[in-house]
Design a protein around this nucleic acid. Structure first.
Lengths: 340, 340
DNA sequence: CTCGGTTGTCGAAACAGTTCGACTCCCCGG
DNA sequence: CCGGGGAGTCGAACTGTTTCGACAACCGAG
C-alpha cells in the first residue's frame, strides 16, 4: 500500500492537517516543521491519492479526447491532431484520456457525470454530427474540434478549411490560370459530410466562381494508385485544357503527382499544383509541393485553451484558424495551354 | 453540482447504504425498494463519483500509455499501435491515458504513486532504453511493448521482428535467390538502437548467412525520394546481380518501388520484393507488395491482457508474436540474373 | 410456541484528503 | 500591564462511496 497523509503525519510527528498545509501552502507553517514534513514525504515516497484529492477539489486534471477510430484511413493526419492536443494539454499540466467515438455517449456520460474528467474535446466533428446533441447534454464543458452546422452553444474551434480552399483557388487564379480542377477526398468522405472535405471544396469552388473562372472541374479521388489515375484521366476528359490543380487528398497526392509524371506532364511548366496536406507530406513529395498545411499543433493549443476557459467559467469565442500557403515552386504563371 | 448517493437516498427515502447495495448488488434488496432507488437514480441523473469510488476500490480502471511523441516520423505506424491498445483496453472496460514519453518519469510517478492509473503500458521500448530502470521502480504494474536487452523482470510483449526478418529472408532464399539486399530503416534509427530496426535486420542477415547465401547487401535507406534513389543506386553498385529485396522502411517503400519502375526493373520478373510494413500500405503500393505486416491490434490486445494479469497478481510469460507473410506476387522464383 | 436462519434495511466506520474553527503562543502598541 | 492580532498548530467536519455489524421482521422446523 502506498503511504498516506496519515503515515506522513505520524512519521513527522505532526497532525494530518499540518501535512496538508505544507503541501498546499494555504496556511503559514514554520520553517522547521515544513522541513520535517517534506523530509518525511520524501522518505515515504508519498504522493497524494488522486481520487481522494479529486473529490474535494472537484477536478481531476484529466481531459477526455473523443476520436473516431474505426476509419483507419488518414491515420497520420489524425495522429497529428492527437499529438497536438496531447502536447497542449500536457503543457497546461492536464492529462489526456483517449476515447473512441464509436463507444458512444454512454462511457462519456459515465466519465463526465462521474467526475472522472474535467472536460471533453471532440475531434473530427462533422457538419451534421449526431454526437453534437448528446455532447451538449454532458455535465462537463465540451470543446468541438470541427464545426457542425448547429453547434448548439457548444464551444468550437476549427481550421478554416473554407479559407484554405479559397486561398488555393486565389493563388492559382492570381497566376492567371483559367482552367482549374479541384481533386478532393473520396466520394465516401463527402457522403459523410466531413467538414474538412466539404468546406475546402466549397471555399475553392466559390472563389473560382467569384473570379469568373468558368473552366472548373470538381472530382473526388478514390483510394490507391488506380483511383488517382482514373481521376486524372476523367479530369482531362472533362477539361483537357486544365492548367491548375488543387489537391486535397492526403492518400492520393503522391499517386496523382506520379501519374502526371508518367504522362509526361511537367510541374509547374504544364501544370500548376497546390495541395492541402501536412507539411511533412508536402516536403516528401516529388517535387516538394506548394501547400497549405493543417496547423494541428495550434489547433490543439486553441482547443485546450478553450476548454480551460470554459472550466474557468468564461465562454470563449469560437476560433477559426486562418490558412497559410507555402510556395514551393509547383505553381507558376499560366503558360499556353497544351492539348493532351 | 452533480447528484451524490446522499441525494439519491433522500429522494428515494432510503439510507445511503441501501442505494449502494442496489448499485453493487452485494446484498439482497427488495424489489420495491430497488425500483424506487433506480427511479431516483434515473431522475437525478446520478453517476457515482469516480474519484471517491477509486479510493475504496483501489483502482481507477485507467491505464497509462507512454509513447514517444517527438519523433513525428512513422506517425501512422505509431497510430496503429495506439489504436490497437486503445481498442483492447476499451474492450476490457478500461480507459487509456496518453502520456508523452518525453515528459519523463516525474508525471508517471505522480500518476502511479498517486493511484491515478492502475498500470502502465510503455510503447516503443528500445534495446537499451533508459526508461526501463525507472519504469521498474514504479509502484504499479508495467508492461513493455518492445523488448529491451535487460527487461529487469518487467513484463514485456513484442512482435517477433527477428522472425519477421528471418521469414522474409527464408522466403526469398526458398525461391532460389542468391543475391539479396536488405533495405532497412534510416541510419539514425539504428543509432538509436530501435529494437524493431535492429532485430528485423539481424534476423534477415542471420538467416541468409545460415542458408549459405553470400550475396548480401545491407543498407539503411534515408528519407525521401532521394534517399530511396540513392539506396537503390548504392545497392546495385555494391552488388549488381541482386535479384531479391527485403524492405523494412515504411517511409521509403513507395519511393523504392517507384525508382525500380523508373529504372525499368520489372517486379517480380527482374526483382523479387518482400516488405515489412502495414497491410494497408502493402495494398496501396504499386504493385501490391508481398509483405509481413505488423499485428498492431493483436499486440495491443496481448499487452492489455498482460497488464490485466499483472494487476491480478499473476506474472504472465513474455509473449513474442510470430510474423506471417502474405504473398501478393512481388516475389517469384529466381530467373537468370540480368546485369544492370 | 420458541428457536434458528433468511431477508431487508440502517447507522457508523473506513478510505485519503482538504479546510474551517478554535486554541495557544508571542509580539507589539497603548 | 492588558488587549489585539498574527503565526503556527491541531481536532473535527466534510467530500462521496463502500462495507461491516447490527437489528428487526418473517419464515419454517421442532
Amino acid at each position: 500500500m502506498a503511504a498516506s497523509v496519515k503515515d506522513v503525519a505520524r512519521h513527522a510527528g505532526v497532525s494530518v492537517s499540518t501535512v496538508s498545509y505544507v503541501l498546499s501552502g494555504n496556511r503559514p507553517i514554520s520553517e522547521g516543521t515544513k522541513q520535517r514534513v517534506l523530509a518525511s514525504i520524501e522518505a515515504l515516497g508519498f504522493q497524494p491519492h488522486a481520487g481522494a484529492r479529486s473529490i474535494r477539489a472537484g477536478a481531476t486534471d484529466i481531459f477526455a479526447l473523443v476520436m473516431p477510430i474505426d476509419r483507419d484511413v488518414r491515420a497520420d493526419v489524425q495522429m497529428r491532431f492527437v499529438l497536438g492536443v496531447l502536447r497542449a494539454a500536457r503543457a497546461k499540466g492536464k492529462n489526456l484520456l483517449l476515447l473512441p467515438a464509436e463507444d458512444g455517449v454512454d462511457e462519456l456520460t459515465r466519465l463526465t457525470a462521474g467526475s472522472a474528467v474535467d472536460g471533453v474535446l471532440a475531434m473530427e466533428v462533422q457538419v451534421h454530427d449526431p454526437r453534437v446533441p448528446t455532447l451538449a447534454n454532458l455535465s462537463k464543458p465540451v470543446v468541438l474540434i470541427g464545426t457542425p452546422e448547429d453547434p448548439q452553444h457548444l464551444a468550437h474551434v476549427d481550421f478554416d478549411f473554407t479559407a484554405a480552399g479559397a486561398l488555393c483557388a486565389r493563388y492559382l487564379a492570381d497566376l492567371g490560370h483559367q482552367s482549374i480542377a479541384y481533386l478532393g477526398q473520396p466520394a465516401e468522405t463527402f457522403d459523410r459530410e466531413a467538414g474538412y472535405a466539404v468546406r475546402a471544396r466549397n471555399g475553392a469552388l466559390q472563389t473560382l466562381h467569384e473570379r469568373g473562372i468558368h473552366g472548373v472541374v470538381d472530382l473526388p479521388v478514390e483510394l490507391g494508385r488506380d483511383g488517382a489515375s482514373e481521376a486524372i484521366e476523367r479530369m482531362f476528359r472533362i477539361q483537357s485544357e486544365t492548367t491548375g490543380l488543387i489537391i486535397y487528398n492526403e492518400q492520393a497526392l503522391t499517386h496523382l503527382l506520379l501519374r502526371l509524371e508518367e504522362l509526361g506532364i511537367r510541374v509547374p511548366a504544364d501544370m500548376s499544383i497546390v495541395a492541402i496536406c501536412p507539411e511533412a507530406q508536402a516536403l516528401d513529395a516529388h517535387p516538394p509541393v506548394s501547400n497549405v498545411s493543417l496547423p494541428a499543433a495550434e489547433l490543439g493549443t486553441v482547443a485546450v485553451d478553450h476548454l480551460l476557459q470554459l472550466i474557468d467559467g468564461r465562454s470563449p469565442e469560437p476560433v477559426v484558424l486562418p490558412p497559410t500557403l507555402v510556395a514551393r515552386g509547383t505553381a507558376s504563371r499560366r503558360s499556353v495551354p497544351r492539348q493532351w
